[in-house]
């Protein structure tokens, strides 16, 4: 492996090119493997594709680049505190917009930190939602019959199907 390589180029599922540094790519096992494969070949003309759309990949790479220094070297408590604040700002996104794409990408790229963060963000957003809003974002149909709804209401007074 050539040690001079500092960044690699990857393609998004939309076909756009993105650069990601070696240290940032190490946050994801599959990315790390890709990196090793690319660097082993002398003529790096084959650009690997990541099955994540451009809009999401920008965010994922941004997360990796921010977290790479700490993941690779370990850092002080004040850095951890700063990173926590950064994570909160980073996660200020709409569930309808990009959050679920980030979740899928973090799952696909085996990025534990980002996956936990995105799951917690989704859970926090859900806390303020009604049952019908939840159905919408998860593409779920209300499959309770009116009799079943009535029975559940009797068993658990105050439960809502809307």
């Amino acid at each position: 492996m050539s040690s001079s390589v500092e960044a690699i180029t990857v393609l998004s599922s939309d076909g756009d090119e993105f650069k990601i540094t070696v240290s940032a790519a190490k946050l994801s096992k599959p990315l790390n493997w890709m990196l090793e494969d690319v660097c082993f070949s002398d003529d790096c003309d084959e650009v690997p594709t990541i099955e994540v759309n451009s809009k999401t990949l920008v965010k994922v790479i941004e997360y990796c680049e921010k977290h790479a220094p700490r993941a690779n070297s370990g850092a002080s408590d004040s850095d951890a505190e700063e990173l926590k604040k950064w994570d909160i700002e980073f996660m200020k996104m709409d569930v309808k917009d990009i959050l679920f794409h980030i979740l899928m990408a973090a799952n696909y790229l085996h990025m534990e930190g980002l996956y936990d963060l995105a799951c917690q963000t989704a859970a926090d957003l859900m806390k303020g939602m009604t049952v019908s809003q939840i159905r919408k974002i998860f593409h779920i149909k209300n499959d309770f019959s009116s009799e079943e709804q009535e029975q559940l209401r009797r068993q658990h007074p105050g439960c809502s199907f809307d």
């Binding site: 859900m126 806390k127 049952v131 779920i140 809502s160």
Partner: peptide, 14 residues
């Protein structure tokens, strides 16, 4: 990651 109270409320989803 949801509190138990919410999980109980979301039983009515499906």
């Amino acid at each position: 990651r949801l509190p138990v109270k919410r999980l109980i409320r979301f039983r009515c989803v499906c």
